[in-house]
């Protein structure tokens, strides 16, 4: 299970990139009056570069799970039937569109229509990237992964970590906070609760309460219930940190976001990230390799 660390890092970072791009980028690109004045352009660029950086890191770390990384140039050879090829195709598409859009914004080229169109295309590619990533694991040979559990978990991680990363950015770097911060923090709290409930809801099928997978030739995985419990505890702590941030925001807005919010929001981000990483190790641990 621990050997799958490159896949854990790749999937969590890739999903966070998509979530950040959508949660932080959608209002910036599509809200009325959000046209490209100088500060809006700066924020758009920051979101694009952060998503691109995360995707680049995810792609780099994914090579560590290959035993012959230099042969990976052929990885698009089987787009016709392999979800792994498709995942890489959409991953590259997402990154390329992010880069093009960032370049246009950087140089001030292109109109609002083009930027919005590229944003939509990048978003579609990113969603297909995470969808292919889910389909890749939905194998008939692996009943533990072969249902809605996989895509729901992956997209939930994307939106949750994306929203929290956006909140952490605003909380830490915007003195005085932004008017959108409070609803964003509230949304994060709802998403952490959703992740918590989803983990509880899927627990019986995923071997936590002693349920065993049907007998097969696949050896038992190493997923431990301690890991699962640790994830739940960390998510609860993360939601407490978020609640503290919301309380601070409401009770003393004059404090200024930088002084008042960076600590609890940053803490929530770290805790929820740890929770998602533990959850992903647990995901891989459900299936053994001979």
């Amino acid at each position: 299970m621990l050997k799958e660390w490159p896949l854990v890092a790749f999937t969590v970072a890739g999903q966070t990139a998509l979530g950040l791009f959508l949660v932080a980028g959608l209002p910036l690109f599509f809200s009325r009056g959000g046209a490209a004045d100088a500060p809006a352009r700066g924020s758009r660029l920051a979101v694009l570069l952060a998503a691109l950086g995360l995707m680049a890191a995810a792609s780099f770390v994914s090579f560590f799970h290959l035993h012959h990384p230099f042969r990976a140039v052929r990885v698009l050879a089987n787009v016709r039937t392999s979800w792994l090829s498709r995942e890489v195709l959409f991953e590259l598409g997402f990154m390329a569109l992010l880069a093009v859009l960032a370049f246009l914004l950087w140089t001030g080229t292109g109109g609002e229509g083009l930027h919005r169109g590229l944003f939509a295309a990048a978003g579609a590619s990113g969603v297909l990237f995470v969808w292919s990533m889910s389909k890749l694991y939905m194998l008939k040979a692996v009943p533990a992964w072969d249902h809605a559990y996989t895509p729901v978990s992956f997209f939930l991680t994307a939106v949750l970590l994306g929203a929290l990363t956006a909140a952490a950015f605003s909380g830490a770097f915007r003195p005085g906070g932004s008017s959108a911060l409070k609803p964003l923090l509230a949304a994060c709290l709802v998403l952490v609760a959703a992740a918590f409930l989803w983990a509880l809801l899927t627990a019986p099928v995923h071997g936590i309460f002693g349920a065993r997978p049907p007998a097969s030739l696949t050896p038992p995985g190493g997923a431990s219930s301690a890991l699962y419990a640790a994830r739940l505890i960390v998510l609860v702590l993360g939601s407490l940190a978020l609640a503290a941030a919301i309380w601070r925001e409401s009770s003393a807005p004059a404090l200024g976001a930088k002084a008042g919010l960076a600590a609890p929001v940053g803490l929530a981000w770290v805790l929820v990230l740890i929770g998602e990483v533990l959850g992903r190790f647990h995901f891989y641990g459900q299936v053994g390799r001979p």
Binding site: H65, L66, H67, H68, P69, R71, A72, R74, V75, S82, L84, L136, Y137, L139, K140, A141, V142, S216, L217, T218, P219, V287, R289, P290
Partner: peptide, 16 residues
């Protein structure tokens, strides 16, 4: 000579 060692096929084969 082609295999990149991603070990994805290991998961896909139900006979391991």
């Amino acid at each position: 000579d082609l295999c990149i060692g991603c070990r994805y096929c290991e998961w896909a084969c139900p006979y391991t």
